[in-house]
């Protein structure tokens, strides 16, 4: 269970907004975290506290394949991203690096500053501020398995050991 304060963003938050290419000359997590969401909100890193969450509209993470984007968000201490939809590559990347993401069609009901209780297993989200409950879209079965086997890295490890 995650308890998190909300930072609200709109539709089409692309990977250039999440981590601009001018900072992609490194893959150092702490360095990337310093510039998380910089071109969407230059003060985001200063304002956000460890454990806060991002709530956004459609097509979050569109654009580049840079894994640096979910890495920057995770390293900035953000516990979870909830959006109406995610761009495909970002969606995979987030799972692969262990950033919790949930798809929720009703993100318009959530306001900046709300406090959410998020059950990442069931996808149940309780908005403490508004006393509302939402149900996030279920995580696809295969991705559940991937998470349970310890992520893509451990899945690869097992495959190599089996000589598959």
């Amino acid at each position: 269970m995650i308890v998190a304060k909300v930072w609200k963003f709109g539709d089409n938050i692309d990977t250039d907004l999440i981590i601009p290419a001018r900072y992609l000359n490194t893959s150092d997590e702490a360095e990337l975290a310093k510039h998380c969401m910089e071109d969407a909100d230059p003060d985001f890193v200063k304002k956000a506290q460890k454990g806060d969450c991002i709530v956004a509209g459609f097509n979050f993470g569109s654009g580049s394949s840079r894994e640096h984007a979910p890495i920057a968000i995770k390293a900035a201490g953000i516990s979870c991203v909830i959006a109406k939809s995610f761009a495909r590559i970002f969606y995979r990347n987030a799972f692969n690096i262990g950033l919790t993401i949930l798809e929720l069609p009703e993100t318009d009901k959530i306001s900046e500053g709300d406090t959410l209780e998020i059950d990442t297993k069931t996808g149940k989200i309780f908005n403490k501020t508004k006393n509302e409950t939402y149900q996030a879209t279920a995580i696809p079965e295969f991705m559940q398995e991937l998470i349970e086997s310890g992520g893509l890295f451990n899945y690869a490890k097992k495959m190599i050991q089996k000589g598959a």
Binding site: E67, R92, Y155
Partner: peptide, 30 residues
């Protein structure tokens, strides 16, 4: 390819798609 514009190569009747680095690392290894 670990680049979102990998889809370019579909122009040849191939299936080509961009992925993140971990996914491409997985493909390198396995």
């Amino acid at each position: 390819g670990a680049d979102s514009h990998t889809c370019t190569h579909g122009a040849f009747g191939a299936f080509a798609t961009g992925m993140g680095s971990s996914d491409v690392g997985f493909a390198f290894a396995t």
